[in-house]
């Protein structure tokens, strides 16, 4: 009998690119500082999360990247999230950027990201550790 999908939680990111990923977009950090999206560093996210009373940075390691059944414009990225290595899959546009620790913006198709958003971007690969958020009180 065909097996059911593994018990992962799945989050579908809206099928449009949010405006804040466009090069030059102004981002406000938790301490009020304003930075352009392309100038953000790993420390900006970490420090903002430390200030936040609700949000916590988690390390999400890319475990698998595959094409979506929905559309060739989409990819399914499977992450191992946090210390418990919970499996989470997200379906995103191939140009959707993720922030990789110590590296910066990366996407499944960096050429398209750069073309559409002008956001400097590298190729997202299996083993990359991305920044993600969870609630501090989520256990």
């Amino acid at each position: 009998a065909p097996s059911a999908p593994p018990p992962t939680s799945s989050t579908v990111v809206p099928p449009s690119l949010p405006p804040y990923f466009i090069k030059g977009s102004i981002i406000q950090l938790a301490d009020g500082e304003l930075k352009r999206v392309e100038d953000l560093k790993t420390e900006d996210f970490i420090q903002s999360a430390e200030i936040s009373s609700e949000l916590k940075i988690d390390s999400s390691t890319v475990e698998r990247i595959e094409g979506s059944h929905t559309s060739p414009n989409f990819a399914v990225v499977q992450f191992s999230v946090g210390e418990h290595r919970a499996q989470v899959s997200v379906e995103v546009l191939v140009e959707y950027p993720f922030f990789v620790f110590g590296q910066g913006w990366s996407s499944c198709c960096p050429d398209r990201t750069t073309q559409l958003l002008e956001l400097p971007c590298t190729k997202l690969s299996v083993g990359d550790v991305c920044i993600s958020l969870t609630l501090k009180n989520l256990r």
């Binding site: 981002i27 903002s48 969870t134």
Partner: peptide, 25 residues
Amino acid sequence: NVEPRSVPVFPWHSLVPFLAPTQSD
């Protein structure tokens, strides 16, 4: 320098995917 009045300003957490694993215990 950044001029906040003429452009929209987005909160930092908008940029980060919210990956909240479901706990099954």
